[in-house]
């Protein structure tokens, strides 16, 4: 056994100083190991036997290294190439509704001009222009009562707002994917839940296979294109205003502010963990919160003791931010979502009273379904995750 070479999959290897990020890009699974682990992987990739690899690792570490146990761990992670050739491999699912395959499909050189130095200068200028316009021109500021449902017919408002939201979301998520393509990485789209919100998401986990500084572009690409769209709409409104432009501007500002809620694992959360060099802050935050309330379960104290020190350092304050986030989300729902839903249901009740023979009846039901649908999906996903946890 120890004289046989170990066949590894095509693994990614990123040197982060004291640690090395290793991953299987096809499956989308990544791990962090000490630098000596990187020496072991590199030796195995070069076809060295376990024996020879152990000798090189000992030379590097200055003490004997248990290579066979590490190879066994790699096997458990699925990092060894043990398939029949020709087997198609699928990435591991990370969301309840998700594309089953990685999405490539665009040559990197076509996407690259959108994320070069000139492009980022443009994104920055658009963000500054939008901010200045919102601060300096009071008439452009979003007004929840006026812009979102400026039309007197709330049903028409629903029909206007939700499709616009979907189009803007598609552009935002598509831009994340384009930025990943510029780095020659694939991504995949999915739908998931964040606390009480339904979210459209782009899985950018393959960013773990590139150096840290190159991860920021794809993470900020969504907000970058939001800034451009907002700048165009605000500029347009200065010249010629109308209801649709008001609604688009309102939704864009609303969505960009929403991204600031890092405790929901938004784009800016990913930027934060990249900046702090965290590896698994989300899990460590949960463990630290449980520890604070004396609710650690079996094995979790050991898991916490083995956690990355940077994760623990950040988790000590991030856990309270997350807890405060529960109240922020409750306030957000009470301030934004509830008033809209209440007035919608009142309007629906009045319209439905006309009876199923009237077209108003069906129109009102369709509008209600469109606005209530996402909230019902959130409830469904919450119930589903509760059931799978209990199983």
């Amino acid at each position: 056994m120890t004289t046989q070479p170990v066949r590894l999959r095509r693994l990614s290897l990123v040197d982060e100083g004291e640690e090395v990020l290793v991953g299987d890009p096809e499956a989308g699974t990544f791990i962090s190991i000490p630098a000596v682990g990187g020496v072991v992987i590199a030796a195995l990739m070069n076809g060295a036997t376990v024996e020879e690899t152990a000798r090189r690792a000992e030379e590097y570490a200055g003490e004997p290294v248990d290579v066979p146990a590490f190879v066994e761990t790699l096997r458990e992670l699925g990092f060894l190439d043990e398939d029949d050739p020709g087997d198609e491999r699928m990435p591991v699912a990370t969301a309840p509704i998700q594309g089953r395959r990685w999405l490539s499909g665009l040559r990197p050189e076509l996407a690259r001009p959108l994320f070069g130095r000139v492009a980022w200068f443009g994104y920055g200028a658009a963000a500054l222009f939008s901010l200045a316009a919102l601060v300096l021109v009071p008439a452009l500021r979003p007004d929840p009562a006026g812009d979102a449902f400026a039309v007197s017919d709330i049903g028409l408002g629903a029909l206007l707002v939700y499709p616009i939201t979907l189009v803007l979301a598609a552009v935002h998520e598509g831009w994340h994917w384009l930025a990943a393509r510029a780095l020659d990485l694939p991504a995949r789209f999915g739908i998931d839940r964040r606390m009480a919100f339904l979210v459209f998401e782009t899985d950018l986990s393959l960013l773990w296979s590139v150096p840290r500084k190159r991860r920021y572009g794809p993470l900020l690409a969504g907000l970058a294109i939001d800034s451009v769209m907002l700048a165009v709409v605000l500029g347009w409104r200065m010249v010629a205003d109308n209801t649709v432009l008001g609604a688009v501007a309102y939704i864009l500002v609303f969505q960009m502010v929403w991204q600031c809620m890092v405790f929901l694992r938004t784009d800016l959360y990913a930027v934060l963990i990249t900046w702090l060099r965290c590896k698994d802050l989300w899990r460590v935050k949960t463990l630290l919160l449980r520890r604070a309330f004396g609710r650690l379960r079996e094995g979790e104290a050991a898991e916490l003791a083995a956690a990355d020190p940077r994760d623990v350092r950040a988790g000590l304050w991030f856990r309270w931010l997350w807890l405060a986030g529960l109240f922020v989300v409750a306030a957000w729902l009470a301030f934004f979502a509830l008033p809209v839903l209440v007035s919608l249901l009142r309007w629906t009740a009045a319209e439905v009273a006309a009876g199923p023979a009237a077209w108003r009846f069906w129109y009102a039901l369709a509008c209600t379904a469109l606005l209530l649908g996402p909230w019902l999906a959130v409830a469904g996903l919450a119930v589903r995750s509760r059931l799978t946890r209990e199983r």
Binding site: S32, V36, F70, F200, F254, I273, P374
Partner: peptide, 19 residues
Amino acid sequence: MKIEVRKVEPIKATTNGTV
């Protein structure tokens, strides 16, 4: 010495779908 392995979390970019 034993080589300790730590998992890293998935990286997701999101848009709010409930407005």
